[in-house]
Amino acid sequence: SDTYLGDAFDKFEKSNEQPVIMTALPLYHIFSFTVCGMFGLYRGCIGLLVPNPRDLPSLIKAYKDYPPAFFPAVNTLFTALANNEEFQSLDHSKLEMSMGGGMAVLKDTATKWEQVTGNIIVQGYGLSETSPVASANPHGTGEFSGNIGLPMPATDMAILDEEGNEVALGERGEISIRGPQVMKGYWKREDATAEVMTSDGYFRTGDIGVMDEDGYFKIVDRKKDMILVSGFNVYPNEVEDAMSTHPKILECGVIGIDDEKSGEVPKIYVVRSDASLTADEVIAYGKENLTGYK
């Protein structure tokens, strides 16, 4: 962990001050349990527990009273806070690291968060089956990358096709992981284990991703969430990432619905940031920023 987090906590150790980790995530979730719980104990941090992060006034009060050095969260919470006027007015000078996990962080959210806090959201990646961390971005890279970083030490990651073969560099496939943190299998579920483990020990995550020429991985979407439009693959995350940049859209979510002509079509649900936003405006923005079948 120190390799990836770098000197994020050094200044607190030098001043003999205990850094605060704001735990606005349920500790029964593997992301929170590991990052907020185990890492917090390892680094001697104060764990600030937030029972109900949906209660923004209480969360913001806790943030103000106990300014955190480390703030792990999911995209929806980053969005809600970055667009809250009271949160925008707080002192964020002690915040050294913001980490996104559990779901993809949208670029628009990361941009707003940096504008408000001066902090760049760093993404990591893992699953319960990988104990959980498989990859992470090193701290202090200087910009939000949108990717999930590099494999952890002693960890192999590959992008595989349906037959279990590695795809060409830059092509999409299923993110698969092999390493000491990967489970041996599901308890007394041999069939389920056989579905996700390859013969050479890779765990097939169910996430569609791509690897760039520098070895960084990026998640496109969950395999099961993919929308098939007239034979073309449409990933909800891509559509959400593009549409969330509309100035009148606060949040959005995309699903696939049945369609007689094309099999499926994307359907978007929008939370307005401006009450004047119309469905026609959303459709027009989609046509400007997405290819036709998306």
Rank of each mutant, 00 (worst) to 15 (best):
I255A: 10
L169S: 09
D221T: 10
G292N: 14
E213L: 01
I21K: 00
V196T: 10
L290N: 07
G140H: 13
G101N: 03
P138S: 12
M99N: 00
I60L: 07
V282G: 05
F71H: 03
Y66E: 15
G206Y: 07
M99W: 01
L27S: 04
R43V: 06
S32E: 09
E85C: 02
D7K: 15
M103T: 14
D55I: 03
I257G: 04
G146P: 03
P51H: 08
A69Y: 04
P180E: 15
R172M: 06
L277H: 10
I177W: 06
I227S: 02
G164Y: 05
R204A: 11
N165W: 02
T130R: 01
P51K: 12
G37V: 01
G40R: 00
G173F: 01
T245L: 07
V167F: 07
M22Q: 12
S128E: 05
T205N: 09
M197S: 07
V105H: 00
R172W: 01
T278W: 11
K94Q: 15
R272L: 08
S32G: 09
E162V: 04
L27I: 08
A80C: 04
F12K: 01
G263L: 05
G146S: 10
H92E: 15
G170H: 02
G140A: 14
R43T: 02
I177K: 06
V167H: 03
D214T: 10
F12Y: 15
V271C: 08
V50I: 14
A168R: 02
F9W: 10
R172P: 01
H29L: 09
F70P: 00
G231N: 06
R272W: 04
W113A: 04
A136G: 09
S244E: 14
K287I: 09
K224I: 07
R43K: 15
N84Q: 11
L59M: 12
E195Y: 08
Q115S: 12
E240A: 11
G124H: 01
V239G: 01
I120F: 11
P151R: 03
F33V: 00
F33H: 06
G118P: 06
D2S: 07
N75G: 06
S89P: 03
T155P: 09
K294M: 12
A192R: 07
P138D: 12
I177R: 06
I21A: 02
N16W: 14
A194M: 13
K294Y: 05
Q181Y: 02
I208Y: 02
T23S: 12
A279P: 02
E195K: 13
G292F: 08
S93W: 14
T193S: 15
A82K: 06
G47Q: 15
N16P: 00
M183I: 15
T3L: 11
L27Q: 04
I227N: 00
M103Q: 15
L5Y: 08
L150M: 12
K11I: 12
E166V: 09
F33Y: 14
G140L: 11
K11L: 13
D280H: 10
S131W: 00
N147P: 00
K11Q: 13
V254F: 10
H139D: 08
D207T: 09
K112R: 13
F33N: 01
V234Y: 03
V234I: 06
E166K: 05
T34R: 00
D241C: 06
D212A: 04
H29M: 08
G253S: 14
I120D: 04
M152D: 01
